[in-house]
Design a protein around this nucleic acid. Structure first.
Lengths: 136, 136
DNA sequence: GGTAAACCTGTACCGACGTACCGGATGCAA
DNA sequence: TTGCATCCGGTACGTCGGTACAGGTTTACC
């Protein structure tokens, strides 16, 4: 498959394909005599896996590592496997959930109290937004 | 107060202070004859309000706008007030919460299923991670 | 063999939020 | 008046995940 076919099939930009190649996320494909890239069909699957992993919150660096340890399985000791990574990521996500829950509650309180502007709220000790408590 | 005092009192970097000034988040302070900035004590409060608003998920651009509409209150029509902004932000935060909840559930499913690496999971139709369904 | 579409490399840029470094000027105390 | 900490403006860098452009080749089809 040619690069634009792969990009279209995976729903990514052509530039993104080359970017991933530079980042080591996808293998360097074979080339035509003239230097044009020729991808195997599996490249599309790899790209979809990358996108799925991104949706789960993994960074490209993490995905790159996960793909590496998947390829050569002798990752004893050094590289953490998918299990470990998923556990760590879950902890991150749960922490973010906790943060956002507090934030949502605070915003709801501010809305319920009818806060009109930052200046008034900052000086008002009854305001539920954390401006007044912070002011002094 | 001198710039380093304000920065220390608000817990921000000196450079950040100048950055906020460039962004229009804090007023341009008076200067000494030699050009050194001299801040009023309220600058510290403003900085803390900015940090509190950031913790609530507002961008610096949004905070800048909120501070502006707070300062000159004649913001009828054009600029949305704190109420409106808070409602919009709450909707954002709730959307993020929903996303992260799905992500957390997916990660938990993957952990419970004992997924070991991306390659195996991609080819396994029983894997709860959304790689296999996506592969074809 | 001509032509247009696709492709190549390399580099620069986006946005969001700062941080760091430079050479030079200033402030303050002894 | 000297000396040193602090501050000045301007610019460059860093992250993260791409995207865009320039200007030059290659491929594919008629």
């Amino acid at each position: 498959m040619r690069s634009s076919e792969v990009a279209a099939a995976a729903g990514v930009n052509l530039q993104t394909l080359r970017y991933y190649e530079r980042r080591g996320l996808i293998d360097e494909p074979d080339r035509t005599l003239g230097g044009h890239r020729l991808y195997p069909a599996e490249a599309v699957t790899t790209l979809r896996v990358i996108k799925a992993a991104q949706r789960l919150g993994f960074t490209l660096a993490e995905i790159s590592e996960l793909l590496d340890t998947a390829r050569h399985r002798h990752a004893r000791g050094g590289g953490a496997g998918l299990q470990t990574r998923a556990r760590e990521k879950l902890a991150d996500v749960e922490a973010k959930l906790a943060d956002l829950t507090v934030i949502a509650e605070t915003l709801r309180a501010g809305i319920a109290a009818g806060c009109q502007d930052l200046e008034t709220c900052t000086g008002n000790p009854d305001c539920p937004l954390p401006f007044s408590e912070i002011a002094q």
